[in-house]
Structures are given as structure tokens and as C-alpha cells.
Design a protein around this nucleic acid. Structure first.
Ligand SMILES: [Mn+2]
Ligand SMILES: [Mn+2]
Ligand SMILES: [Mn+2]
Ligand SMILES: [Mn+2]
Lengths: 219, 219
DNA sequence: TAATGAAGTTAGACTAATCTAACAAATAAA
DNA sequence: TTTATTTGTTAGATTAGTCTAACTTCATTA
């Protein structure tokens, strides 16, 4: 059985490597994501290598083994199922679920995950629009862009958020945006890339930074 | 914030002291309940005393402070609410809930407890018949006896179990017993106190050890 | 009341997870 | 191709939680 901390390293490693082309990560990169020092990561990598959860040679790049990736996906599955539970059943707002799910994702009980999945009627996406890995560890890859990549005059549909922080999520709500909303790009300011958008007939102006954290699909 | 381990010590301390008249506990007693060595308990007591969660002097008895008792009750409240959730909403059987609740009781989120309580419609008892402390830390004291104390010819109602272990709980089900069942004591064997009982018209014979672990009330 | 056993304490050691500070290797710049 | 910068590693220390083995105090009982 893995410790709480080991699980967090695997999850972080999956997040930095998944969809990064090379599937590799570096010590510093991982350290900054986990908010620990590189020295700490280095120690942990030796432990994870010993347990055959990562491939890693001194001064080399870090990758997850199949075994490590499988565990990472299980934790992400649990995290997103719990977020969905908190949001749908307990009426948490979408900016509150992540923090609690960070704890709940470490509860060890295969039965609990299965029952929860069933109770929620096998959801495919969490409240932030992120896909929930299946029991088999399959994860849906969505061909999504960020709002900042959409050109003037085009329409798209919001499907997820990149930034999961509470302040950002609250801001998204304030702007009148939510998952599945239609967004039309009315204009883009040359100078600072500020975007004038329309959602349900209501206009808003958003910064480039904001637009880079909204995932959309073109229909 | 307390660690997972500190919380377990407070909970264990509450369990051994609550309703014991003196409200006191000893090092060895606590050690055996927590399945650690007395030396370990001794170290922890110093930490808990420092944090003003227990009253304790060298070679003296251990008691919870008001503050320590309050925290213990919060953990027990969480434990029993989670057990109720698992049993009522996720269809766990009553012998499976305890182990998972041992983990879930340590999730830190006041909001989660409140929401869960509401979601379950403010339950008063958990699946084992144990009272769920209120948000204010009030716990219902039931005037209950054990089945072994009931005399021949009398009837009573099962309200809870003393032993929460999976083998015992499964055995209770097998005997045809459950919370709120009427039990009539038909006869008691002189020699070994074996009890012949009737539940819903069905007769069963149970040992004294068994009868000592069934809580009942006389109506 | 003194001996004996039970209960409780201390010292010293270990593991997991973390840090700081110093060092080494790899990479980018000049 | 040196030099400088970034990246990664090591050594040594700390804290929480645990242990064993030895010791002390308390309580019972002969
Ligand atoms: Mn999340
Ligand atoms: Mn999410
Ligand atoms: Mn329980
Ligand atoms: Mn219970």
C-alpha cells in the first residue's frame, strides 16, 4: 500500500507528463508543483523507483511506469468522482470541491469508488469539465482549445477550465460563464488581447490570461 | 490542526473514558485499544497535554479536557455520519461501513459534515444503533441493557450492537437479527447460559457471549 | 510491612517526509 | 570552448510516530 504522499507524487507526475509529448518530467518541475524542495523530490524518486512506479536514472528524466500510471489514474478517478459527488449531491459550489477532494482521493476502498460511481450514475466529466478516468484507467481525450485561440466572429462552447483555483472559478461565475455555455468572440483588442465576448446575449470583456484558462470546442 | 494520529488518540480516549464513572483511563488500556505499545502512548500523552487536550500527570490517570472531548465528539460524529451515508446511500452492508469510516472520519471540512448531515436528513443513529452526536456535541444516552440481562418470558427490542466487528455483525444477520427487531426470551440453559430466543416467529439459540453484545430496551 | 507483579516511564533507535547548504552535472551563452 | 546559469544530487539535520529494553513507581497480597 502506498502512503498519502507517494500517491500525491504519482498524481503530480501524471499531471506534468500527460500530454506533454515526451511524457517526461524534471525534479524542479515536480518540486514546484508539489510545493516542496527539489532535494525532497529526489529522495522520493529513489523510493518510487525502488517500488517500480517510476523510471529514473541519476541526472536523467522522470517517467511513470505502467504500474505508476495506473495508480495515478486511479487517484485522479477518485478525485474527480468525489468532486462530482460534492457538487451534485451535497450542493458544494464548483470552487469549493477541489480542496476537499484532495483529501477524499486518498481513501482506500475499491468498493467505495465503485459504489460512488454507480450512485452518481457513471459520470463522464467532473464539475470543471475534466474527464473522469474509467475503472479500467481509460481517459477521454478531448480536442479542445483555449478561448484565447478563437478568432473574432467565431463561436465556441466552453467545456472545461484550466485553472482550478477558487478565485479563478468564482471569477468565471461572475463573468456569467459556465460549462456548456456558448461563447461568441465579438472583438479582440490589438494592444493587450482583451476579448469582448457574448454569452447568452450578455457581453463581457475578459483578459488574455482569463481566456487562456477557458477550454472550448468549436462546433 | 491535529494530525490523523492525534485524532485517533482522542477518539480512543473518549471511548474508554465515556460512561466509565470516573472518566479516567490508563496508559496500558489506551495502548491496547490503539494497538500500540505503552511507551508510544506515553510519548503522545505529553504532546496532547502540551496542546491542552488531556489532563495528565506522571503516573497519574488520563482524562480528556473539555477541548479534547469536544474534538473527540466531532470525530465520532463524522464517523457515524459516514457510516450512515455508506449504509443508506451507497448500499454498503453494516459490517463493511466501519473500516471505511475509520478513514473518512479524518477528512477536514466543516462544510462537508454539515452538508452530509443534511443530505442524510439529520440521522440520530448510525447503522449499528449508536447515537450520532449533534453539531453541538450532544450525544443521546440510551438506557439500554444487553440481551443477556433479560429474563425468561420477557420481550425486548434490539437497539444496537456492542461489538462492531465484521464477523460478529455478519453472524447477527445470519441469526436473523437486526436493529429494531422484537426479541422474546423463551428459555435460558442453566449450565452455559445459552439462550433460546424468538424473532419474528423464528426461533434461534444464541450463546451468552453473543447475548452480551446485543443491546436492547424493554418496552 | 515487605515482596511481588502490574502499570507506567525513559533512553535510545528507526522510518518517512521534509528541510538547508553545499556540491556536481548538464546546458546555454559568450 | 570556456564560462555562467540552470538543474539535479548529496550530506546532515529535524519532526512525528513508532519500537525495544531497561528502569521506576504503584498497588496488592502474603
Ligand atoms: Mn480538483
Ligand atoms: Mn476537477
Ligand atoms: Mn464504526
Ligand atoms: Mn457505528
Amino acid at each position: 500500500m502506498l502512503t498519502y504522499t507517494e500517491e500525491n507524487y504519482l498524481k503530480a507526475l501524471f499531471k506534468v507528463t500527460f500530454g506533454s509529448g515526451s511524457n517526461e518530467a524534471g525534479t524542479n518541475e515536480l518540486a514546484s508543483l508539489l510545493v516542496v524542495k527539489p532535494a525532497t523530490v529526489n529522495d522520493m524518486l529513489k523510493k518510487l523507483k525502488e517500488k517500480e512506479l517510476v523510471d529514473y536514472e541519476k541526472y536523467g528524466k522522470i517517467t511513470l511506469t505502467i504500474k505508476g500510471k495506473k495508480i495515478a489514474l486511479e487517484i485522479i478517478r477518485k478525485h474527480r468522482l468525489w468532486e462530482t459527488f460534492l457538487y451534485q449531491k451535497l450542493e458544494f459550489s464548483w470552487d469549493e470541491v477541489h480542496e476537499v477532494a484532495e483529501q477524499l482521493e486518498h481513501i482506500q476502498s475499491g468498493k467505495l469508488v465503485d459504489k460512488l460511481d454507480k450512485f452518481l450514475d457513471y459520470p463522464e466529466f467532473d464539475p470543471h469539465g475534466d474527464p473522469i478516468p474509467t475503472k479500467k484507467g481509460e481517459i477521454k481525450v478531448q480536442y479542445k482549445k483555449t478561448l484565447s485561440e478563437i478568432s473574432v466572429g467565431k463561436s465556441c462552447k466552453m467545456v472545461a477550465v484550466k485553472d482550478n483555483s477558487s478565485p479563478f472559478l468564482q471569477y468565471v461565475v461572475k463573468v456569467g460563464l459556465g460549462i456548456n455555455n456558448e461563447i461568441k468572440v465579438l472583438s479582440i483588442q490589438e494592444y493587450d488581447s482583451m476579448m469582448l465576448i457574448e454569452i447568452n446575449g450578455k457581453q463581457s470583456t475578459v483578459s488574455q490570461k482569463f481566456a487562456e484558462n477557458i477550454f472550448v470546442v468549436i462546433e
